[in-house]
Simulated scan of single mutants.
Amino acid sequence: MPMRWLFESRGREGRTLDAQMREAGLEPARARWVIISHLHDDHIGAAASFEGATFIGGLGTAGKVLGLSAPRWREVDFHDTRALPPFDASLDLFGDGSVVLLRGGGHAREDVMALLALPGGPVLLTGDAVVHREWLHSDDVERVAVDSQRAADVRNQVRALLVARPEVTLLPGHELQGAPGSRGDVTLHHPEWFKAEAWPLSH
């Protein structure tokens, strides 16, 4: 059952992605590329603001985001891509190692993660393949998953990456705790907004 039948996802005024970008002096319409981690409403609500961008998403995402006028889409099908251990499928988006897309598929079937090569060191953007950092320290599968075994596999791949490459900065989909606050190449815009107000993070 689509979650939107049960819940309405609304951004608070001034806190949506496009509003935060403008506050930081960035114009969403000037963005050239937008990576959609997955199609849940709380991750695509501001998509229409990126009117000049090409959208990158997992298999089955093209045409699924409402409110976009003739969007340009590039779907990533990881079936014919190579492994990037510990991940079982990857795609070098621009061919230069700057943005490597990684297959998720547990939280939502179209999950895409992104490993960025930044001047201050690599950063892994997980979307909701890792919702909260605490999930990596548990053997429970993710609570909201379309494929619990795949969710566990992805969790273990992320765990293995962080062990093998401790220089990687992890940015989960719904948490900034533990993220670096002093890097010139990563800006934490209003990290206080990411503190949970009602949702329990542990059992």
Rank of each mutant, 00 (worst) to 15 (best):
R143V: 08
M21D: 04
T187E: 10
R32L: 10
A179R: 04
G63A: 02
L115S: 04
F78T: 04
L118Y: 06
P119M: 04
P122A: 05
R133V: 07
G97T: 02
A117Q: 11
P191N: 05
V186S: 03
W193A: 14
G97M: 02
G106W: 15
R159G: 13
V186L: 14
S9G: 06
R32P: 08
P86L: 03
N156Y: 02
E142Y: 11
A31D: 06
G97E: 09
Q177L: 15
V123W: 07
V186Y: 03
H43A: 09
Q149L: 13
T54I: 06
D185K: 08
G184E: 08
V154C: 11
W5P: 06
G45A: 12
R30Q: 10
S138M: 09
V146Y: 05
V146E: 10
V112R: 07
L101A: 02
F194V: 12
H190C: 05
R109W: 10
H107R: 10
G173D: 07
A29K: 08
G52M: 04
F78A: 01
E51D: 12
L91Q: 09
G14A: 03
T81R: 09
D185C: 07
K64Y: 07
G52S: 03
H38K: 04
V112N: 07
F194G: 06
T169R: 02
R22A: 12
G58E: 05
R183V: 01
I36T: 09
L91R: 15
E134D: 12
D77Y: 08
G52C: 00
M113Y: 01
L162A: 01
R183I: 02
F78L: 01
V141D: 12
A47F: 00
G181K: 10
A117M: 01
E75D: 04
